[in-house]
Amino acid sequence: MPEKFDHEMGLLNEDIWNMGVLSQKMLLLAVESLKNRDKDLADKVLGMKEELYDYDQHIEEHTLKVLILYQPVAKEMRNLACILKMITYLTRIGRYGYDISKVTLELADQPLVKKLIDIPNMAKIVAGMLDDVLKAWETEDLSLIEDFTERDDVLDEERYSIFRECLTYVMEDPKTITRCMHYVMVARYLERCGDHCCKIAEKVVYKVEGKHVEIS
């Protein structure tokens, strides 16, 4: 039984990893499309949504199948519980990439209010968190997610900084309102992605140590 179970888990783990990579890719490409006002790239991200949803559905079904057929316990059960939550958070992160791409399409014909620096920086932090939390999940090395609270705090500060900066642009020139509103929304999306990474990290701690913790 363990061999068959291990085989199933191997497939599931691979799918989760690929789903994580896809979510991260959607987010990073979406921010790049916004930064470069690249409609083609934004369209490409929009096209990834179906694959993301397929992963979500397929992994959920596969996880339930493994739970039903093998009735795992201990760390094996904790890993499956972790996976069931992870796919929701990964779907939301990828979905924010989709939403940012929609913003790109809306703003692509207008000039940037200024060169985007903070938003790509936030995306970089989120991508790093996602990388580390997936590695922590795979390797069970919790030191990779030890500083998530601090990283999440940085994202919160960056979001607020973007908000204040946008306020100054709006006050100076009301024509920037639409663009600035979108920037504020994108910053909010990225901050939420950081929160989702923290939630995944909580589940990884549960998988590895069997403890329920709150991060951030």
Binding site: E146, V205, E209, K211, H212, E214, I215, S216
Partner: peptide
């Protein structure tokens, strides 16, 4: 394994 699991440490996180 790491510090934020210790209860009462609000800065780093806490056990639920």
């Amino acid at each position: 394994v790491f510090g934020f699991l210790s209860s009462g440490n609000n800065k780093k996180g806490k056990e639920r």
